[in-house]
Structures are given as C-alpha cells and as structure tokens.
Design a binder for these strands. Structure first.
Lengths: 191, 191
DNA sequence: GATCAACGAGACTACGGGTCTCGCAAATGA
DNA sequence: TCATTTGCGAGACCCGTAGTCTCGTTGATC
C-alpha cells in the first residue's frame, strides 16, 4: 500500500540544503535567518518546518551532508605523515566556507543540548573515529607508544585547530600541520 | 568642578555583575535573559543599559571580574610540574559555574566579532600570556626545547581543555592534567 | 474524479533584546 | 532652601526573527 497524496519534493529538499550551505558559508556567522534560506531555495517556510524541526537542524544537515566526503584519511604505513596530511586537510576545511558553518553550529551547541549531541554524533565523532583508528594502527605498527591515553593524544593533536577556529586568537595556515606534528610527535612516538 | 546630578550607584553595579555571574553560572547556557538579571539584581533594565551596551557585555564583565584572581600560576623551577598544576586549576575552573559562563561567551563570540575581540583581550590573552611566560622560563632553564613554535605548543597543551569544554565529547577530570602533561612533555622537553 | 498530502505564499504569534517615558531620589550650586 | 541636573526603578513599548497557522493549489493514489 503506497502513501496517499502528493509525494515529497526531493528537489526542494536539495535546494534547501544547498541554500543553507551556501548562505551560512558565505556570510558572517549568525547572519542567515530561516527566511533567507527559504527565499534563496524558492521554498515556503512551512515546507522547511515540515521536514526539519528547527533552523539549526537545517544547517546541521547541510553541514553533515555537504562535507560527507571531505577530510578523508590517507592510509599509508607512515602514520606521522598520515596525520600531518590529515591536519592539512582539516585546516583547509576550517578555512573554507565550511569553517563558518562549523562555528555557527558550535555556537548553537553551547545553548542547545540536543543540537550538541547531534553535532557530536553526526559530524564530530565519525572524524574522531577515523583519527582514532589511525592512532591505533600507529601503535600496532610500533610507531606510536602504547602507554598513552588515546583521547588525550587526539585532543592534543586536533585541539589547536579547534581552539583557533573558535577563539580566533591566531590564523590557521596549512604550514601549521607540520608545526603541530613536530610539537606532538616526539612525545608520542616509540623511541 | 564636580559632576552634577545624582552619582552612579556602585552598589547597583555590583549587584548586576553578581546576579549575572550567579545566574549564568547556575543555569544551562542561554537560559538567562537580561530581564532575569535585572530582576535578580533589583535594578531597572534601563540602569543596566545605561552602563553596558548589551546583555553579552554584562556577562563578559561578570566573567572577567569574577575570575580576576583565579587560575594563578605556580612558579617553581620545575616547569613541567608548574604546567601540570596549572592545568588542574583550569580544569577545576571549567568544571565550576565559570565554565558555563565561558561557554556562553564563546557561543556569543562566534556571531559577534566585537565580543570575540573583547573576550580574547580581557579573558583569554592574559591567561595565555602567563602560560607563555612560563614556557619561555622553561626554555631559559633548559627544560624545554627552544626550536618549537610557542603558540602551537600552548595550543596543544590547553587545546584538550577548550575542546572538551566546547564540544563536550568527554568529561574533564583533574586527573587529565597529568595525562595531558604525560602526552605532551616528552615532545617538548630538552633531551 | 474523489481524496489525500505536499506545496508556495503570506499572515500571524511568541519571545526576548533593546528603547522610551515617567515620576522619584540624590547630588550640586546659588 | 530651592532650582537644576543626572541616576534610579518601574513598566510600557518597539522590533526582528524563529516558528505556527491558513488557504488556495498541485500532484500523487485508488
């Protein structure tokens, strides 16, 4: 038995997500309202709220879907080089329009526990898992010490990226990937 | 020549800052409105806006003034121990009501460039300077390598604290001070 | 062609940050 | 003592935006 009535307009859904991604990525954080998104997507506001619970949920979807394939992990037998390459990729991502969207979501996450959970589950954790797998692989290969707290190591490696994105005390350049690796690696490498 | 008219009520100013600190520190971020602060301080809203430009500015003042003397740096000749002790202090601060206030300010800073600058200048940078001075002292004492990027090292040490505060992927316990030091120190110590 | 749900358009509500007004209180100066 | 000036408390008010409701229309199924 099929569903009755008019079916969902997948084209409109895509237009909404595209508009959200483009608008939020191209303006200062906080400058994009739900009306802007609806207008840019040529969609009625109600159509948005039929499928998403809130403005923030739309932007989060746009972020997750729009960056699905970004920040892949190189996988060689040189774990240090893999991490350095990955750091460069994330730095480029943070300096792209996506960086603004991440900042906006992070702001919302501070005051909305549900969004915070969804942001972690759908955006943050998958990337974290990839990094963690690479760390474990490095330990297996004997390139990384096995007596460290994995979570702390990952926080130390990626912490500079996140703090510079959110605090903005210093710019984040691709060259920082090497600097971070240089600072961290001697502390976690085996011998 | 003295100023004419009624003088500023310093008592009321103090009540506003106290109320802001207490309220924002004791509720989920984003749950405290300017009306709540005015009511709790027994002050008219206009009185607040006579001396502060925005709700956010009040909370930032409350944060800066309320934590003026917190997070002091122990200064011994054992720089590693000094950093570990300081990390413990900051962790305690982040787990206290102050942590909520910091999160709230960080959220605002993402969408308000003026607040972002003020937050950095008045809250973030002074602590950063203290940490940096300790790092430089460690280099002088020959306990820390001299070929590292200071900013990156500081970001790596304190990054885990800030990311756990803002992302909330893992709790932050005093024991993490040692874990962070253990992970970072071998990479930055001389020899 | 009857029915059902999604759609675009746009009016509407709810709420909170910020402004305005008013009568009163406290400080100065004549 | 009294006029003037500025801060104060109280509360109405304005305004922008997230989210809801209504309506006439469109596209799908039976």
């Amino acid at each position: 038995m099929m569903a009755r009535g008019r079916t969902r307009d997948d084209e409109a859904e895509r237009r909404v997500l595209d508009a959200a991604f483009d608008l939020v990525g191209s303006r200062p954080p906080g400058d994009v309202g739900i009306n802007d998104i609806a207008e840019a997507a040529n969609v009625a506001k109600q159509t948005i709220y039929r499928w998403w619970p809130s403005r923030t949920a739309v932007i989060l979807d746009a972020l997750v879907i729009g960056t699905m394939k970004e920040t892949p992990f190189r996988e060689t037998d040189d774990i240090r080089a893999d991490f350095e390459a990955h750091l460069r990729t994330v730095i480029r991502l943070f300096n792209s329009p996506t960086g603004r969207i991440v900042r906006e979501m992070l702001a919302e996450a501070q005051t909305d526990e549900a969004i915070a959970n969804e942001f972690r589950d759908r955006f943050w954790q998958p990337r974290r898992d990839l990094s963690h797998a690479r760390l474990v692989r490095g330990i297996e290969l004997g390139q990384i010490r096995s007596d460290l707290d994995h979570e702390i190591v990952l926080d130390a490696i990626y912490g500079p990226l996140w703090t510079r994105l959110t605090i903005g005390h210093l710019p984040l350049s691709p060259a920082d990937a090497k600097r971070i690796t240089d600072a961290i690696w001697p502390g976690i490498s085996r011998d």
